[in-house]
């Protein structure tokens, strides 16, 4: 019931607070301007040291991003620019999952070895390569294990402290 209430509240807040009409009309945000039109940004760009580490990023910001009054690039949370947030998040999420799943697969595999502790100090390369290749498919494997009940331990296997 509490979960249902939380979901309802989330939906309500989303639809009341999100400026849906602005996204539909493609109207630009009121206070963000393209960085090339922002005086504060131009000032920052001119004051930046001339080097590879400043020139290229500033040029990229100038032609691609929107700047606020502080002269720094900001992302807009709008549905028509959702890709700005979704793609970087998806890459991060997949990579984090890949690292976690590979490690988990390696540890599960190493338990079957004759000396499980040793495989943590001296890496078993064939097993590690198998674990990495499993990690690439982690979203599919996670769904498969979740539906088969292998992802988590059974309730009766959980240790419970005495009460």
């Amino acid at each position: 019931m509490r979960k249902l209430f939380a979901i309802l509240l989330m939906g309500l807040l989303w639809f009341t607070l999100a400026p849906a009409d602005a996204a539909a009309a493609g109207a630009p945000d009121t206070h963000l301007v393209p960085c090339q039109a922002s005086e504060a940004f131009q000032e920052r760009m001119q004051n930046a040291p001339e080097s590879y580490y400043f020139d290229q990023p500033y040029q990229a910001y100038e032609s691609n991003l929107l700047c606020g009054a502080d002269g720094l690039p900001h992302l807009q949370l709008r549905f028509d620019r959702a890709i700005d947030v979704v793609i970087p998040f998806a890459i991060f999420f997949y990579f984090a999952g890949f690292v976690g799943w590979s490690g988990r697969a390696y540890l599960i595999g190493s338990k079957r070895a004759s000396k499980p502790e040793e495989t943590e100090i001296f890496i078993d390369l064939p097993l590690a390569i198998r674990a990495f290749s499993q990690g690439l498919l982690w979203p599919l494997l996670a769904i498969k294990e979740l539906t088969a009940g292998e992802l988590t331990v059974q309730k009766n296997e959980l240790s419970v402290s005495p009460r």
Partner: peptide, 13 residues
């Protein structure tokens, strides 16, 4: 290019 600056997936303004 631009992946590092977070601008690769942006359309040019």
């Amino acid at each position: 290019p631009g992946l590092q600056y977070g601008t690769y997936f942006h359309r040019a303004l």
